[in-house]
Amino acid sequence: MADAFTFELVSPERLLLSEQVTQVVVPGSDGYFTVMANHAATMSTLQPGVAKVTTAEGKQEDYVIFGGFIDVLPTSCTILAESAVAVSDVNKADLDARIEAAKADAAAATEGEDQAKANNYLAQLTTLNQQILPA
């Protein structure tokens, strides 16, 4: 059995999860990656996606994360999510609302860089939507 480490998932509103876990899969901005105990110190931005958490007791918990940061240390790991919801609590209306908001943002962005960023975010959200809630 793999070593356990402290994992925390924090959104601006509250601390969602603070537990001993063995493994976390997170949607990094350069692709999904897995964090286990004694991982090299890393800091990465996250894109919208699903974080899969395996607790020390072997339970699997999934959270949908809408962008944020991950701060990995050999002994601990913290996700600072812009917003996060447990997968079981995700509903279609909420996701649709976020997609609409992202569309509006993308349309409003004028500068090339901002626009690219907004479009990227939108694309991520759309994929995510199809993944979790296959129509």
């Binding site: 990094g28 890393t42 800091m43």
Partner: peptide
């Protein structure tokens, strides 16, 4: 003391 790897 922790040397970070940054992504991107």
């Amino acid at each position: 003391s922790a040397m970070y790897e940054y992504e991107p």
